[in-house]
Design a binder for these strands. Structure first.
Lengths: 290, 290
DNA sequence: CGACGTCTTGACGTGCCTCAATCTGGGTGG
DNA sequence: CCACCCAGATTGAGGCACGTCAAGACGTCG
């Protein structure tokens, strides 16, 4: 039934990706390697085939859930491309408060923000068994020198990250709690789908608190809003397992003006899902555990 | 008195910067040029002196207040370095809502987010008489190829932008309205100071609404908060003219744990400046240190 | 089985938004 | 020169969305 293809994201499940060498699986330092061309595909780029470029490989690191890929303040010398698993990047402020900056998934790059200062400026913590390609930045720029297509790719990666951060500013600066959550769920859906997993059924790997931190909300608000979505029939929630029931309406919560099927495409404000007392005060929205 | 060195930001006022050629001032297309090495200094980098690199110049564009440097959707082919003036970058969403993404000032780069999609994705509008260097991106990458130091600079620019956007996420996601405004004022102060202007007295070039959009607040909240700061003796406000009276306390509003002079460096929450009736209804807000 | 982390839900307070009136300064035209 | 206008700014009153505090339910692990 493929009800949740996202639960297992180990590389062996992903279609067509395999380590070049797989010896000594159990040593602390893995000897596995990935082809650069493979990573390019994961990143969503297509490069002209090149025999010499196809020979380039990078080492792979495996990280268990809870372990950190790199610490804030560590000297920067490599970027990482996630091959499988699920991370969170956490910036710790001077006052000790933590802020979740993102949830890197397979096909996404980690560490580009360390180039300028020469240090990583966020903890990167695995929320799952993870598998990343380690790409020494000096080697990457070297490749960019030799191959114009790689150079272009590298600039695109930076730029893409910037675009994403701008979108994040939009979410944090203008959207309500409901819209932020809806946007977050749709983003996850899209990213899982892009990887070949189900777009409608997936697991949140993060706690409510981590999600809240990422979205500028408190964990209670995240929990309440998810419950409200479920009560409205938009999604199913079971702990961290999410199933999207009405993605179109979720999208309309983010932006009331998206045109998808019926109704006028004009200015119509989707009423908040968390309407207090939907109509008859007698009807409890949700029966608590019987 | 030097009460507002920031009011005039034309290039002729900035120390040591002059166009290489200044013919035909009044033609629509300016013939002025800037040396690349000059821009590098403006950007805050130091490069090893190189005779050939010192010959590289870029054209200059002058833009009057209210005009736009580039439109969202325009094909991307150049980045801009602000030499003088003050811009706002505005992303217009599908629903027509506008979001101010930033306020580029001299020494800052515009357009890096267009590399990936090949199109600018925000309007860049001058809030002042502006002067920018036009740097064709292809030419810039070409330079990066020839000069490793330029290559490093380019990566740093991208990375620096990313770091700044992360900081913005922090502001939008975790700070109160007061803290956001304080952070904004301190940021402006720092950026003006970096340019050789007064850190304590400067003019906001943006309206309350634009500032609010940038900070995820409504214009009324911006106005109220500025008034509250003024009432508390933190700043002076006269329309768009701002004078910082107590930067240290502003900093403490952003992060209560900064250590600057007195008091315990422990967990102390700076009471909101907008205290409703601080104690005795007769006494206005500046209760803390006399 | 108890301890713990996570999640849920309720009650309440408040910070910011909303709506609205007024004020100011700068620009325009007679 | 003044009347007029209008965008921008200020200020108030009231409401709601989200934060805060608190209690309990659930799943997991030792």
């Amino acid at each position: 039934m493929f009800d949740s293809g996202s639960r297992e994201t180990s590389a062996s499940n992903a279609p067509g990706y395999a380590d070049v060498t797989c010896s000594a699986e159990n040593t602390g330092i893995t000897l596995a390697r990935v082809r650069f061309t493979e990573l390019v595909g994961l990143l969503g780029f297509t490069l002209p085939v090149d025999a010499s470029l196809a020979q380039v490989v990078f080492p792979v690191r495996r990280i268990k859930a809870g372990e950190t890929l790199c610490h804030a303040g560590d000297p920067f010398n490599a970027v990482y491309v996630v091959r499988s698993g699920f991370f969170k990047t956490v910036a710790t402020e001077t006052n000790g408060a933590e802020l979740v900056l993102g949830f890197p998934m397979p096909g996404e790059v980690i560490g580009l923000d360390g180039v300028d200062s020469g240090r990583y400026l966020a903890e990167v913590i695995a929320l799952d068994i993870c598998n990343v390609a380690v790409i020494p930045f000096a080697q990457l720029t070297q490749l960019a020198h030799q191959y114009p297509c790689v150079e272009k790719l590298l600039y695109s990666l930076f730029s893409r990250e910037l675009v994403h951060k701008n979108a994040m500013a939009w979410v944090l600066g203008t959207l309500s709690a409901e819209a932020r959550l809806a946007s977050f769920l749709l983003d996850l859906s899209h990213r899982y789908g892009r990887l070949g997993y189900s777009r409608t059924s997936f697991a949140l790997r993060a706690t409510r608190e981590e999600i809240g931190s990422y979205l500028g909300l408190k964990l209670e608000t995240v929990s309440r809003t998810l419950s409200a979505f479920a009560a409205a029939g938009l999604i199913d929630v079971n702990r961290r397992q999410i199933t999207l029931r009405d993605p179109a309406r979720l999208r309309r919560i983010v932006d009331p003006n998206v045109e998808d099927d019926d109704a006028t495409p004009h200015k119509r404000k989707s009423a908040p899902v968390t309407a207090r007392r939907p109509r008859t005060p007698a009807q409890p929205a949700l029966a608590m555990a019987a």
